[in-house]
Amino acid sequence: MAISLTDAAAARIKTFLENRNSGYGLRLGVKTSGCSGMAYVLEFADQSEGDDTVFEDKGVKIIIDPKSLVYLDGTELDYAKEGLNEGFKFNNPNVKDSCGCGESFTV
């Protein structure tokens, strides 16, 4: 059971957390919605709940609730640049299929 960050992702998250001036870490998760079943959740976290699993990679705390962890186990979070756009990318080995845009997926 593990979640990892690329160097680029870790650096960006640190920058964003610093800029925000507060925050415990980064919350990853999934929720059921979207055109293809599941959608990722990517939020700043101010605290962890009792059931949460907390990983730490490259100095960044990653908080995941137990339900989401099933879908995200083994995921590597990357920060990528595509043309003018830039943002986070989930490299999730559990994904069987995703919608055209990749915002939602099925396992």
Binding site: I13, F16, L26, R27, K31, S33, G34, C35, A39, Y40, V41, L42, E43, F44, A45, D46, A80, E82, N85, E86, G87, F88, K89, F90, S98, C99, C101, G102, E103, S104
Partner: peptide, 17 residues
Amino acid sequence: MALLQISEPGQTAAPHQ
């Protein structure tokens, strides 16, 4: 694969929203 941004707690938008 779409590129995602970090949201404030509880503010994650639905896909395409």
